[in-house]
Structure formats: C-alpha cells, structure tokens
Simulated assay, not measured.
Amino acid sequence: MVLAVDGLRMRYGDAEVLHDVSFSAGHGEVVVLLGPNGAGKSTTIEILEGFRLRSAGTVEVLGVDPAAGDERWRSRLGIVLQSWRDHGNWRIRELLHHLGTYYAAYATNTIERPWDTDELLAAVGLSSHAEQKIKTLSGGQRRRLDVAIGIVGRPEVLFLDEPTAGFDPEARYEFHNLVRRLAAEHETTILLTTHDLDEASKLAHRILILNAGRIVAAGTTGELTALIAGEDEVRWSVDGQHFHTTTPDSTGLARDLFTQYGASVRDLEVRRASLEDTYLALVRGQEVAL
C-alpha cells in the first residue's frame, strides 16, 4: 500500500476532530475525501503530509511514518494547498524552473525529476502565460500554477486540497484530464479533497465521506449510491395529464405503463438515487447500513 492509515485520531485540547479513521490507497489510485466544513478532511491530509502530528493511530506514506519523514521522503510527495504565498514578481517559467532544481538530486533510475518546465507548463495550460509575473494572473490561472508547483517534482503521491477552487469549466475539464493522466500513466497515488460532488464522481476510484471526524461511508460512486435504500421518482404524462409517483421498481412501473397506455405515455422521467442524495443523507445523520 502507498497510503496506510489505521485508527487515526486527532485531538485539540478537549476536542477530538478525528475519530478512528482508517483507509488505504494503492499505486495509481485516486481517493477523494468528501465532507462538510470541519469534518476533518484538511487535518487528515496535513497529518499524511507530515505537517501535523497525530494524537494516536498509525500512518504510513510510501512506507514511512510522516512524523519521521526526511528530505528524500518529502521529495516523493506533491502538495497543492488551498492557497500559496509567492513573491508576485516571479515569472511563471522562472519560478517553476527554480523550484525544479530542488528535486534534481532525487532523480532515480525509474523517476526523472524534475518535470521538464515546458512540458509542465503545457500540462497545466499555462504555456502562453510562461513569461507573465505571478501578480498579473487571474484567479484560475493562479490556481493552475498552484497545481504546477505541486507536481513539479513528479511526485509518487499527490495531495490536492480543493484544487479546482476558482477554475472555470474549461480549466476544470483540463485539470480532471491531468489527474487521470497522472494516475493512469505515472501511477501517481492521489488524495483529493473537494466539495464538488460531480468532480468526486468523475475522478475517484474510491470516495471516503467524512462527517464529524469519522468515515461514515466508503466506496465507489455506485457502491455509495446503493447504500441509500430509497425509491425512484417517476414522472410521466398520458393524454395531457401529468403524473408523479415513487416506486422501488421504476423499470417494472415503466413496463406496466407502456403495456397499458402504449404510445400515449409521454415525458417519462426516472430519477434514481445519486451521489448527492447519499452524501446529504449521510452528513445529515440518516442511518445507513455500511
């Protein structure tokens, strides 16, 4: 396992913000942490990055306890925080080239470090802005630079904390493709936090839902939506009259409707449980059989 977390706990004074959190991730796996503000997502990531000391439990990242990780271990990680503070007069190309020099000493026979600057600029969609000063960038462009900074060393593990905040739809689409390439082509293990349920369902091999410091559900999008034993909503019309009902068997209902009314059935619409339904039910405290 690339990431292995068992019985993780975090306490600030009398407040316990993480309660017995356990999960793992393998090579090339994208794991998404979902949860409301204050659920413990950022704290979990900071412990795995070695930025914060845990109160209890065991944690290993690339076979090393983050609390004891040395410089060589850190060179194998990539981190994209929710915000960065850089000198605004740096030009994008020179900043990425400068940061890349710190990783050159940690190249291996299998991993070339750092990423080529021009290749990296193209990967995050900043080639045409390479000579701009950071202070002139828009919010979305600044966020793309944050991602470039996080992956400049070709990390084996990448931590992304709300990475697409401020992205426009095109930039978000390009970023999602980049995440998929990193995982599939480079076997980068990625742990990502987001509030965007659509983003989670598109990127995640596995989703962990945190609420009040506990993992309340874990699985693929399909597995999580299956946890909600709800009924499908079905809407249709016959001869201008509109109908609406709920049923555990929408397929059977549709078949019966067409058997009875044939081509008179119009505007048939079936809404099944979604990841959003599952997420809202879990964070609102609905009982779910895990």
Rank of each mutant, 00 (worst) to 15 (best):
D198I: 07
F51S: 15
I79N: 13
Y279F: 14
L120Q: 12
V17N: 04
V59E: 15
R54I: 11
A226D: 13
T247A: 05
R144P: 03
V265F: 00
T110W: 00
P163K: 14
L145K: 10
G57W: 00
A104G: 10
R154G: 07
R11C: 00
V5Q: 07
Y102K: 02
T221M: 04
H195K: 05
I151D: 03
V152W: 00
I111V: 14
K41A: 06
V152N: 09
T245P: 07
L126Y: 05
R11V: 13
A226Y: 03
P248G: 12
L224T: 10
V234F: 13
H205A: 11
A184L: 05
L158V: 07
G140N: 06
L18K: 07
D196G: 04
L191Q: 12
Y279E: 14
R113K: 10
A217P: 03
A4M: 00
L208Q: 06
S83C: 01
D267H: 03
E187Q: 15
T259R: 15
R54V: 13
T117D: 04
R181I: 15
V17C: 09
A218V: 06
E156A: 15
T117N: 05
G38Y: 08
T220Y: 04
S237Y: 02
T193L: 02
E94H: 01
G125I: 03
G100P: 02
E94P: 01
G100V: 06
H195N: 12
G50E: 14
I190N: 11
T245R: 14
L208G: 12
F258T: 10
L33A: 09
A226T: 09
A104S: 04
V30I: 11
T193S: 14
A273N: 08
L268A: 06
Q286W: 00
V124S: 12
S264M: 11
S128C: 03
R142F: 01
